[in-house]
Design a protein around this nucleic acid. Structure first.
Lengths: 355, 355
DNA sequence: TTGTAGGCGTTATCAC
DNA sequence: GTGATAACGCCTACAA
C-alpha cells in the first residue's frame, strides 16, 4: 500500500489539493502547514507517482534510447553519456536494444510510444522507410546518432561524426608514413557510415595522387569475427598492400588477431588503423592507431537537442537539424614505430541542415 | 494530439468501454464491432497510453536496472541479457547508472520508485546500510547481481557467481602449471567479491600445501589503470612470484599492458589469470586465461526471479533467495604455453538461502 | 452485447 | 490560504 497525497491529506486534516501544493513548493500555502505536510510526507514515506503526474502534465520526464546492442563498447559509451546528461536534466531513460533485428527495432519504438517518452534517441542504426514511418508516428522528436535515415521524416534530427573527414585523416596518416598500397576493410554493405568512410579513404588517396584500386577494398562485417577472412583476402595476392584502414576498431582488432595467428607482423608487414577508439583499442597489442569519436560529447549533444526539441528546459534551440562533430587521429603502435600524435581538435562544425 | 479510446469511441459511435474491451481482446464484444473498432484504431494511429493503464492496473510492466557504469563490458553483457529477457516477458527497462557515487545510486532508486517499476535489478554494487533502507522502501522486489548487501533487507534476493569456487579454479590451474609463488592482485578493499576471490585463492593454496603469504597480496582498484602499480609491487622484490591471479580481467589487462611496457614476458616470466571473461579477454596479447562468468544466464535468472517475485507471469517461483552459478576456467595464452581447456560445466548450484 | 459510473494519483482552475 | 471539482486515459464492476 503506497501512500498517496490523499492519505497525507487525511492524516494532516487538510484537502489533497493543499498537500499537492505544499509538496510542489507552491507559494499559496502557509509556511507552517507546508512544513507540517512535508514532514508528514517524509514520515509516511511518501513517493510521488510519476505516472499520475505525467498523465496530467503531459510529459513523462523520460527519454528512450534504442541501440543495436549495448554490448558494443562504442555504443555503451554513448549510452553512458546519454544517461548521464539525461539525469542531469531530471530525465530518466528507457533502454531498448534491437540486436539489429528490424522487428525488434519497430517493437521498441512502439513500446516507447506507449510509454509516452518525451523524446527518443536512436544510435548506430540504419533507418529504413518502414521504420521511419513508425518514428514519424511517435509524436516525440527523434534524434539519430551516427545513423542515417533513407528518407528523412519531419521529426528526425541527428548528430553524426564526420566519417569522411575521419577516414581521410586515417588514410592520410598512413600515406604520410610512406604507404602507397592501402587496403580498406569495409563494414556491412550499404551502411552509410561505411560509405562515407570509404569516400574519405578515396579522397585521401586522390589527394596523394594514388590510384584507387577496387580490389583493395574487402567487404567485412563490422564485427571482430571477420578478421581472418579479411586478412587472407588482403594477403593472398601478388601485390600485397602494406597497410589497411579498417571500417572500425572491432574489425581492426579482428585483423590484428588474425595477423598474430598467421604470423604477419604488425605494423612491420602490415600497418593497421581503425575507427572509433573504443576503450580497448589502447590495450590490444600492438596498440591500435585509430580515429577517436567524441562519444561523450555526441551523447550529450543528442539529449540536449532532444530535450530542446521536446520543449524541455534546455535554453536555446540548436539552429541546425544535423550536428556533425569531428573525430581526431590517435596514433599508437599499429601504424608504425615512431610514436607521435597528430592532434586534430575535436571541435564541431555544424553543417547548416543536412539532407 | 494523440488519439485516445474516447476518440475512437466517438468515431465508431460506441462508448469508450466498448472500445476498451474490443482492444483488450475481451470476449464480451460482438466480433464485428470488435473488428470495426480494431480497424478504426489502426487507421487513426491509436497507441495505448501505458501510464494510464498502469495507473489503474497497478503494474507498470517496467523494471529498473541500476549499474555502476554501462561502460564496463561485464556489466554491459548482463544488461544486454536483462533487457532481452525482460522484453521477452513484455517488460521494458529503465537504466540508471551511478558511476559508483552513493548519491547517484540513491537518487536512482528514488527515481525508480517514483516511476513505480515492478522490480529492480542492481548489479555489481556494494549495498550499504543507508542504501538498503531506500531499497526496502521501494515496495518492489530487488534482486542483486553479484552484489552483497551489508545488511539483508526483507525484499532483497540475489544471483551471484561462486567467487570462491572460481578463484579456486584459477589458482589451482596456476598451481598445476607448476607455480608455487602466486600473487593476488586484489580489487577495491572491502568489496565482498574481492573478499571471496581471495578466499578461493587461499583455499587453493592451502589444498596444495602452499603457505599463504600476505605480502603477495597487492591491493588494486579493479580498473585497468592499476596495472603499473601492481606490476612494480609484484616484481620489485627479492622473491619475485612467477604468477599472478587478478581480481578481474580489467586488472589483468592492466597488468599485461604494464608488463609489456616494462619488458616482463608473459607468461614466461609471469603467468597471469583474470576473472570475468569480458569479451576482449580473448583479444589481448597474450590472450587472457580467465574465469568465465555465465553472464547471459545470470541476467536471465535475475529478471525471471524479479518478475516471479513481482507476481508476474513467470510460472514457478524459485525456491531460494540466492541463486549461485558457477563460472568455468577458460585457458588461453597468458597462463602458459600448452593450449588446453579444462572445462567445468557452467551448471549452477542453488545454495539454500544465503545470508 | 453494450453503456454508465467510478476510480487510479496527480495537477489545475475555480470559488470561498 | 484552502477546499471542492474537473480533468488526464484507461479499466472494470454494475446496470441495462
Amino acid at each position: 500500500m503506497t501512500v498517496s497525497i490523499k492519505d497525507i491529506a487525511k492524516a494532516a486534516g487538510v484537502s489533497h489539493s493543499t498537500v499537492s501544493r505544499a509538496l510542489g513548493e507552491s507559494p499559496l500555502v502557509s509556511p507552517d502547514t507546508k512544513d507540517r505536510i512535508q514532514r508528514l510526507a517524509r514520515e509516511m514515506g511518501y513517493s510521488p507517482d510519476a505516472q499520475a503526474r505525467s498523465l496530467v502534465m503531459g510529459r513523462t520526464q523520460t527519454i528512450g534510447i534504442v541501440v543495436t546492442t549495448i554490448t558494443d563498447p562504442f555504443i555503451a559509451e554513448i549510452v553512458q553519456a546519454v544517461e548521464s546528461t539525461a539525469h542531469d536534466h531530471g530525465y530518466s531513460v528507457i533502454l531498448a536494444s534491437s540486436n539489429s533485428r528490424r522487428r525488434r527495432e519497430i517493437a521498441a519504438v512502439e513500446m516507447l510510444r506507449s510509454k509516452r517518452v518525451d523524446a527518443v534517441i536512436v544510435t548506430s542504426s540504419r533507418v529504413g522507410a518502414l521504420y521511419q514511418a513508425h518514428l514519424d508516428q511517435l509524436g516525440a522528436p527523434v534524434v539519430l546518432i551516427n545513423s542515417r535515415s533513407e528518407q528523412r521524416g519531419p521529426y528526425t534530427f541527428s548528430v553524426t561524426v564526420d566519417n569522411r573527414h575521419g577516414a581521410c585523416l586515417a588514410t592520410g596518416h598512413l600515406i604520410r608514413r610512406g604507404h602507397r598500397r592501402i587496403a580498406y576493410i569495409a563494414g556491412a554493405a550499404n551502411h552509410s557510415d561505411d560509405f562515407d568512410r570509404m569516400a574519405g579513404y578515396r579522397q585521401a588517396l586522390g589527394e596523394a595522387n594514388i590510384a584507387f584500386e577496387p580490389s583493395l577494398v574487402v567487404r567485412g562485417t563490422g564485427r571482430v569475427d571477420c578478421g581472418e577472412e579479411a586478412l587472407t583476402a588482403v594477403m593472398d595476392r601478388s601485390d600485397v598492400p602494406s597497410a589497411a584502414f579498417c571500417y572500425n576498431d572491432m574489425t581492426a582488432i579482428g585483423l590484428l588477431r588474425a595477423a598474430r595467428t598467421a604470423g604477419v607482423s604488425v605494423p612491420r608487414e602490415l600497418a593497421v588503423v581503425g575507427f572509433d577508439d573504443i576503450p580497448f583499442a589502447a590495450y590490444v597489442s600492438p596498440a591500435l592507431t585509430t580515429i577517436a569519436q567524441p562519444k561523450p560529447e555526441m551523447g550529450k549533444r543528442a539529449v540536449e537537442m532532444a530535450l530542446a526539441l521536446a520543449g524541455g528546459e534546455v535554453s536555446d534551440l540548436p539552429g541546425f537539424t544535423n550536428v556533425v562533430v569531428r573525430g581526431r587521429l590517435v596514433v599508437r603502435e599499429s601504424s608504425g614505430e615512431r610514436m607521435q600524435v597528430e592532434h586534430q581538435p575535436a571541435s564541431e562544425s555544424d553543417g547548416g541542415g543536412s539532407s
